[in-house]
Amino acid sequence: MIATLHLIPVRIGDSNPGFWMPEEALKQARKIKVYIAENAKSARSFLKDIGSLYQLNNIKIYQLSSNTTKNQISEWLSCFEECKDIGLISESGCPAIADPGSNVVLIAQSMGINIKPWTGPSSIFLSLMASGLNGQNFAFRGYPPIKSDELKRKIISWEKESNNINQTQIMIETPYRNMSLFKALLDDLNQDTLLCIASSITSECEYIKTLSVFEWKSKKTDFIYKKPTIFLFLAKFKKQSFNN
């Protein structure tokens, strides 16, 4: 029996699973009886949405947290002796991308377990695709510093790197701090740097727009407050040219 850890994507917006998840991935996710997830309650909500073949109380869910040890994860994965498939899901989007699930995958790799990634939405990659910014050289910076002086230093440093090597900078923030980060970007980036705001991706109120920092300063953007949002920017690259 070949053991497989299935990396199952989870929705990132309020939309029908058929909109963002391929049918084959849905079929597989519905058949799995053991899951590893960050939150058991939201995991059950996901399983209900996709129409699991089993009663929710008959599905085993191991809850992953910052306190979970390697030994615990190894014990969870050892249940492959009883079942050949385990699912790994994130709170939102693709597991193991900007997500603690990567720890589970690494341990599974060391145990010789087959890893099967399934296609699904990632706010990081969807926003990059729609931004028009450089998709061949990019860096995901995660959550930037909260303290204003540290944040300012990071923004300036990342913009310098973006300018030097034509690299798109990508970051995310807790929804209630979106406006603070947006203001800091407008204050600290150069006027001609391109900034993309990608908010509520895959939902009915999805908004993705790329403008220069100068242009953003005249735009009303308070609608991103408390909305899941990705921020991307690309400094004006002097050597960049386009063929006509």
Rank of each mutant, 00 (worst) to 15 (best):
I155S: 00
I115N: 01
V10L: 02
L88P: 00
I2V: 12
I2R: 13
S199W: 05
Y207M: 09
T221W: 13
A37Y: 05
N243A: 12
I172N: 07
Q167D: 02
L189M: 04
L211V: 05
S45W: 07
L53A: 12
R177C: 07
F80P: 02
E161F: 07
D85N: 09
L26V: 07
E161C: 08
S122I: 02
S74Y: 11
E81T: 12
N178F: 05
S199R: 06
W216R: 01
S131M: 00
A184L: 07
I172R: 10
I12D: 05
I2Q: 14
V104H: 05
K41D: 12
C79Q: 10
F138V: 00
K48F: 14
A37D: 06
S110Y: 02
S148Q: 13
V213R: 03
K70C: 12
S90W: 01
S66Q: 15
K60P: 09
F19S: 13
I146L: 13
A43H: 06
R141Y: 11
L5A: 02
C94I: 08
I12T: 02
F138S: 01
G51C: 07
W118Q: 13
A96Q: 11
E161D: 10
S199T: 09
F242V: 15
V10E: 00
W118M: 14
K209S: 12
N58V: 03
K31D: 10
T168M: 04
L126R: 07
L232F: 07
R141T: 09
L106W: 11
D187R: 11
G120L: 02
A198F: 00
S90P: 01
K70H: 13
D187M: 08
L26C: 06
K147T: 08
I156H: 06
A198S: 10
L88K: 00
K154R: 13
M1S: 14
P144Y: 04
F80E: 01
K239A: 12
A25K: 03
N164R: 14
S131K: 06
A25Q: 05
I115C: 01
P95Y: 01
D149F: 15
K70S: 14
T68L: 08
D192V: 04
E215I: 01
K27N: 14
E173P: 03
K239T: 10
D222F: 10
K60E: 11
L232I: 03
N244K: 14
P9C: 04
F125H: 09
T174A: 15
G51S: 04
N103I: 12
E82K: 15
N114A: 10
Q167R: 15
I201Y: 00
D192S: 11
P100V: 08
S65E: 04
G135T: 08
L88W: 03
I124R: 05
E150Q: 15
P95I: 02
W158F: 11
A184H: 00
S15T: 15
D222R: 08
G112P: 05
N71M: 10
I172A: 07
G135P: 11
S180L: 14
I8G: 05
G13K: 03
D149I: 14
S102A: 14
C205W: 14
N166R: 09
K27R: 15
S123Y: 05
S157L: 13
I73Q: 03
L128S: 01
C205F: 15
W118G: 03
A40K: 15
I12E: 06
I208W: 01
K41H: 12
E206H: 04
T221V: 14
